[in-house]
Design a binder for these strands. Structure first.
Lengths: 246, 246
DNA sequence: GAATGGCGTTCAGATATATGAACTTTCCGT
DNA sequence: ACGGAAAGTTCATATATCTGAACGCCATTC
């Protein structure tokens, strides 16, 4: 198979996970490819601006890669509908809101809306990938899936082996999420941050969820916030449903 | 040189510019590469989720490509400072705001903030690349560059050949932008849409600008809006200046 | 300031990839 | 449902890439 292409993609992935620019040698070592090969591939990536070379011959993700990635968002048709809902939600509650989708065992954050005001900024999370079962948006996405599909979206240590039986604790959590209509996460992902999420059902795309995040200790009531999140998610689902029927 | 890698990147670029999924044959024809080669490369790109195969064996940009691109944004340190300013600006004026940077002869849009309210949505523009000299953000980015650098950021037909002399009309436009402190664009980019932009000076990054867009005919006064845009841009510049001194 | 160590770069042969023709499958029109 | 055509897939060979060692460069240290 086309080895050099795969390696180029691995380099892009590696550099996207690293939050600092990396030099040739560490890249080559971490991926187990010879330095000279890595060098050739890096040159190709730089020539097309997928990577940029900073001082000290360190590489980081370039502007062209960003443009390519943005093109994916344009193909996620749900965004036209979900983004305005996030804007409204952030406007109404004054908190950060998100839209994330389920991909394999992870929740991937596609959109973030920050509230006005110079409060403490939550770390930027667009493009972030976190295990679905430990995030509010992930659990909301999972909870309404057909029972037999859920295990496939969990890492091996959460969905127990033979009968695809969920760990009891986690199955209970999902049941509670279904009963409430939303999922909550108090500090599991980031200490001191509460996340509340509700599912968005997109007939033409992967399962996903709308969520809000705010610091525990804020005066915002859980139930009041959750009601708004659920409403935004339901409105999104309704509009997505209409669209497919066209 | 590493041909297959370059071809893979060309395929990604092609698919990011196309707004519909493309099949193997058109991809191979447009890039002038044999079908079988294209097929091999496409398989590699799909296996790493940089592309997804939709029905009818059509390819489009995948989720992994989005994640990679998002990593670039994280490396654009100016965003931490500029994004909150955009949020404030959109909140204050109730209009869409942008941050764009200058890249070669183009302005590339990095961030967009939409206002709440169910008004007419401007087409999503994150990741968009437009010629700098026809956009408000582009002209604001260009206007304060050293005279001799400007021509390098213009397509051949705008910066006239020998003496790198700008076309008179355009040089005048830039002078007016400098004098006013902001640039305006009424419908040149999108019919009926006014854009106002002011420069953000980033010592540690490319020149860029903050801009707002709204429909002509809205009650918003040009001067009032421009004052706010300039203020947001100046605040960004001030904070970016502080940062570098650390 | 000279030496040293590390890192990036280059080069020629071993090896895997790119190619175009032939095959198979899918889709469309009759 | 059938036939035809176009698209996707496979395969053996010519060819370009990958490799590892040697080179040159820069930064750092004594």
């Amino acid at each position: 198979m086309s080895n050099s292409v795969l390696r180029a993609l691995e380099i892009l992935e590696l550099l996207s996970k690293a939050d600092r620019p990396m030099a040739l040698t560490p890249i080559a070592e971490q991926l187990g490819i010879p330095k000279s090969t890595a060098h050739t591939i890096l040159r190709a990536l730089v020539s097309r601006e997928f990577l940029v070379v900073s001082e000290h011959a360190s590489y980081s993700i370039g502007l062209k890669a960003f443009e390519i990635g943005a093109a994916h968002l344009r193909s996620v048709s749900a965004l036209d509908i979900v983004t305005p809902q996030l804007v409204e939600l952030t406007h109404a509650l004054g908190v950060t809101s998100h839209y994330a989708i389920l991909d394999a065992t992870d929740a991937v954050y596609l959109v973030k809306e920050d509230p006005p005001g110079l409060g403490i900024k939550l770390a930027s999370s667009v493009g972030a990938r976190l295990p679905a079962h430990v995030t509010a948006v992930g659990k909301a996405s999972l909870a309404w899936l057909p029972e037999d599909e859920i295990a496939g979206h969990l890492p091996a240590d959460v969905g127990t082996g033979p009968g695809s039986q969920l760990l009891d604790g986690f199955a209970e959590q999902l049941a509670k999420v279904r009963q409430q209509g939303f999922s909550v996460d108090d500090g599991d992902t980031a200490a001191g941050v509460r996340c509340i999420a509700a599912p968005v059902f997109n007939p033409a795309g992967p399962p996903g969820a709308i969520g809000v995040s705010y610091l525990l200790g804020s005066p915002l009531e859980l139930d009041a916030a959750a009601a708004q999140v659920v409403q935004a998610a339901e409105r999104s689902t309704a509009q997505l449903g209409k669209r497919t029927s066209r």
